[in-house]
Design a protein around this nucleic acid. Structure first.
Length: 179
DNA sequence: GCCAACGTTGGC
DNA sequence: GCCAACGTTGGC
């Protein structure tokens, strides 16, 4: 065995990017307080193919999640969560009568995927949509784009850092250090 | 409540 | 395969 040659025969490290996400949730349906209470939850019911691909292919255990309240007052990133289970078939799609039932999805060939997330922290200060719109570093952020309806979406490392620093004026370093 | 921006559906 | 109609999302 010639160890020096190992690198040449090993597949290149898959690019793990992005490692950060934003999940929208209507607080009337499921809020950051619900997640704090539950500590961990399943993220089922996403019925959009682009989002499905992210759930199935791109989200990995350990990734960071900005928890965003949509259809809320105020609209804001309100906390941080972590992906704790890679994408797996959304079995609710197979439950006849369930609100997420979808005959298109076959257990042999699942149409929809979900992940599990766990609670990490509530923001010290909610990062309102308004404050994000005022922040230059977030000018390109997907959630702020008109018509960006994806309920789960990628966040760049720079955007992640910016939002965490806004939401955790005192312990940003601690939170950043968890990912 | 309004409506823009999508995504999906279905007739052709 | 096109595209009009329709439904949904979600900010405003």
């Amino acid at each position: 065995m010639v160890f020096g040659d190992c690198r040449a025969i090993v597949a290149p490290m898959p690019e793990k990017s992005p490692r950060f996400w934003l999940f929208k949730s209507e607080p009337d349906v499921y809020s950051i307080d619900d997640l704090q209470r539950d500590k961990r939850t399943t993220w089922e019911g996403v019925r959009n193919y682009q989002a499905r691909n992210l759930l199935r292919d791109d989200m990995k255990r350990g990734d960071g999640v900005l928890f965003y309240h949509s259809n809320a007052k105020p609209l804001a990133v309100v906390g941080v969560a972590k992906i704790v289970k890679n994408g797996y078939p959304d079995h609710f799609a197979w439950e006849q009568g369930h609100k997420y039932f979808d005959p298109k999805s076959d257990p042999e060939d699942p149409a929809w995927y979900m992940v599990d997330v766990s609670f990490v922290a509530k923001c010290e200060a909610e990062v309102t949509r308004e404050s994000m719109q005022d922040e230059k570093a977030l000018a390109e952020m997907m959630v702020l784009r008109r018509g960006a309806r994806l309920s789960v979406q990628p966040v760049t490392p720079a955007e992640w850092r910016t939002v965490i620093e806004m939401g955790f004026p005192k312990k940003a370093k601690t939170v950043l250090g968890k990912f």
